[in-house]
Computed example of a mutant assay.
Amino acid sequence: MGSVSSSPVPRVPESRSERKERTRRAILDAALDQLADESFGSLSLRRLTKQVGIVPTAFYRHFSTLDELGLALVDESFATLRAMIRDVRRGEPAPDTLIDRSVDVLSAQLDANMAHFRFIGRERYGGVTVVREAIARELALFERELATDLARMPGLERWGAADLALLAGIFVNLMVAAAGEMVSPEAEDAAVRRGIEDTLRRQARMVVVGAAGWRPLGG
């Protein structure tokens, strides 16, 4: 009995919108690759498009300027992390639980999106104003969302807005500083990485203990 040969499944042609999205993604990935070793201000459009395999003028079909590319990188760097941290805070967990979950989420996100966090860490105080300001806005949004959640925690219900904002800012600054250490070459050593995470947990708990004895200023 002869074997029945199956005909190859016809390949569905890629649509124009799919090609455009694939090229846009390639530009973002190439930018992250180059930004691993240089600042956004020194990013070269010619080198970037050469790596992607397009002519420089084709870049402008996807981004009107290099600054717009930078803003897109900021947006996608924060989008997933913000959603995951929001999920961690859901259900009003106890402070220790919130700290541990947040550190775990941060660590997992760093592993999954190392290039994004290196970009954020370098450009937070970088020379390109529009990118630096976009990062500052994202961090401020983190602080506002966290302050809202902190206001519902036992012992903090009577704190004023100024004190809650200050406490939220301390937590966010701790997380950002730790993230910068976690993406450093030294943190590729597992023991160093664990040490950074443990230090972050202890620092955050110290803040919680201090907050318990703080006399709100009001406002």
Score class of each variant (00 low, 15 high):
A136W: 01
P93N: 05
P185W: 00
L167N: 02
R89P: 06
G127H: 06
A165D: 14
D111I: 09
A134F: 04
L164A: 00
G160N: 03
A115I: 01
V130A: 15
I170W: 05
R90W: 07
A136I: 02
P93I: 06
E143S: 15
E186R: 11
V103Q: 01
I120G: 05
L110V: 15
V128N: 08
R90D: 15
V131H: 05
A147Y: 05
R132Y: 07
L106C: 08
G121W: 02
F171Q: 03
L156N: 10
M153S: 14
R158M: 10
M114D: 13
D111M: 06
A177N: 10
L167A: 15
L174R: 00
D100G: 09
A161M: 07
I120Q: 00
A179W: 02
F119Y: 10
G195E: 08
M153K: 03
L150F: 10
G127W: 00
L166Y: 10
L139S: 10
I99M: 02
A165T: 15
A112C: 07
R101T: 12
G155W: 01
L110D: 11
E133H: 07
L166E: 12
V105P: 05
E145D: 14
G180F: 03
M182A: 14
P154Y: 07
A168V: 04
S184W: 03
G91H: 01
F171K: 00
R137F: 06
F119S: 10
L141Y: 06
A190C: 08
G121D: 12
E123H: 02
G180H: 05
D111G: 14
V105N: 01
L146G: 09
A179G: 13
A151P: 06
A151I: 07
L164Q: 00
Y125G: 15
A168H: 00
L141Q: 12
G180C: 12
I120P: 04
I99C: 07
E133R: 06
R152K: 10
R144I: 14
A191C: 05
R132P: 11
N173E: 13
R132W: 02
S184T: 09
G91P: 05
D163Y: 03
G126E: 08
V105A: 11
A108D: 13
L156T: 12
G195Y: 01
A162Y: 04
R124E: 13
L106T: 12
R118M: 14
V176Y: 08
D189Y: 07
R152H: 12
L110N: 14
A178Y: 08
D149W: 04
L139V: 14
A179S: 15
M182V: 11
A108W: 00
E92Q: 12
V103F: 01
A187E: 10
A112V: 08
G121F: 04
A134T: 05
I120T: 07
L141A: 15
A168C: 08
R118A: 11
V172D: 11
E92S: 14
I135A: 03
E143V: 13
R118I: 15
V130H: 02
I170P: 04
V172L: 01
S107I: 04
A136V: 10
R132N: 08
G126Q: 03
I99P: 11
D163H: 02
A94E: 13
L167C: 11
A136Y: 03
L150E: 04
A178S: 15
R144G: 13
L156D: 11
P95I: 05
V103H: 02
